[in-house]
């Protein structure tokens, strides 16, 4: 049985490493430190941790002020508050000044579960990728999240990383390379490519196995960086397989599917099918129940691949 850990755990672990390595690293949180896992840093380096209270807009701009004075600042909250409530702060004060602030937001997607729609952010990719100078990363497991946080600390400028609440299987290994902006091919096939991010990467692999059972060989790409998008990998996928399925725990409006479609439509049009949330709010429920309810399953990816293939064959 594979290791299962929450993606947000990777953030806490990376912060501990960063705290030891670099005295310039500061962490801010808005009264959700246990949930986001910034609490690990808070306990180890209390003099470099600042709980700014339930005031996310002020937190973002404080982070900017600290960063403009030379600090590397991580700021955390739930994805809906960090992106939705603070969007204009992220745009006008953070990205506009290229400040060295990393927004690492937990509780992305509907797998937040029982807390319901108010806490389930399915719009963050869309919101943040429209802002110039922002890097947007959605890791697929806790280990990739850890590497992403460490890599973000090395990159000067605004970065957004979404983490998730539930435990999920570890898909990558210690030695799996992680380079911001460079996607990871997980499986090679000739007929269709599934491009996925976050928790949907595991589902994409399941779908590819089901397709293989019918003799259909699918490529699977872990697109952990949504911005800057690995355009070469997308173009390669379109050219070599001629059909693409995208899978994301996010609205299909403006997310990973849209980012991929923007490239494909202009550079090498091929059929695309998108698996994601279809312009809806979530609701309370268990993460797995919600994934089924909103069509975020391996089976839906499998069906989408079949549709894409039949469109490709005309």
């Amino acid at each position: 049985m594979a290791v299962e850990r929450a993606i947000r755990d990777g953030y806490g672990e990376a912060l501990l490493e960063l705290g030891k390595r670099n005295r310039n690293v500061l962490v801010l949180d808005a009264d959700l430190a246990e949930s986001t896992r910034s609490s690990l840093f808070a306990r180890a380096f209390p003099e470099r941790f600042f709980n700014t209270g339930v005031a996310e807009q002020n937190m973002v701009n404080m982070a900017v002020g600290l960063a403009l004075c030379g600090k590397i600042v991580f700021a955390s909250s739930f994805a809906i508050f960090a992106t939705g409530r603070c969007w204009e702060q992220l745009r006008n004060s953070l990205a506009a000044t290229r400040a060295n602030v990393k927004i690492v937001a937990s509780h992305g997607g509907i797998t937040v579960g029982a807390d319901g729609f108010s806490h389930q952010c399915v719009e963050d990719i869309s919101l943040i990728r429209t802002i110039p100078f922002f890097t947007v990363i959605i890791p697929c497991d806790w280990l990739e999240a850890k590497k992403a946080v460490l890599a973000a600390a090395e990159l000067k400028g605004p970065v957004y990383i979404r983490t998730s609440r539930p435990k999920s299987p570890q898909l990558t290994e210690e030695g799996t390379p992680f380079i911001i902006g460079k996607s990871c091919p997980l499986r090679e096939g000739k007929e269709v490519t599934i491009v996925a991010c976050g928790l949907m990467v595991a589902k994409a692999l399941d779908a590819a196995r089901a397709l293989a059972g019918e003799g259909i060989e699918a490529s699977v790409v872990n697109m952990h960086t949504i911005k800057p998008l690995d355009v070469a990998a997308v173009v390669h996928a379109a050219r070599t397989t001629g059909a693409i399925v995208t899978a994301e725990e996010h609205t299909v409006i403006g997310g990973l599917g849209s980012a991929v479609a923007e490239v494909v439509a202009v550079q090498c049009p091929v059929p695309i099918e998108m698996v994601g949330i279809r312009d809806k709010f979530g609701q309370s429920g268990e993460p797995d129940e919600l994934l089924r309810k909103y069509g975020l399953t391996a089976e839906e990816i499998y069906k989408a691949a079949k549709r894409a293939l039949s469109r490709k064959r005309g």
């Binding site: 807009q57 002020n58 973002v60 701009n61 404080m62 900017v64 002020g65 004075c69 004060s93």
Partner: peptide, 13 residues
């Protein structure tokens, strides 16, 4: 409304 929060961050730094 945003400048003062940045000022707080700079003063804290």
């Amino acid at each position: 409304g945003q400048g003062i929060s940045v000022a707080v961050g700079m003063a804290l730094a």
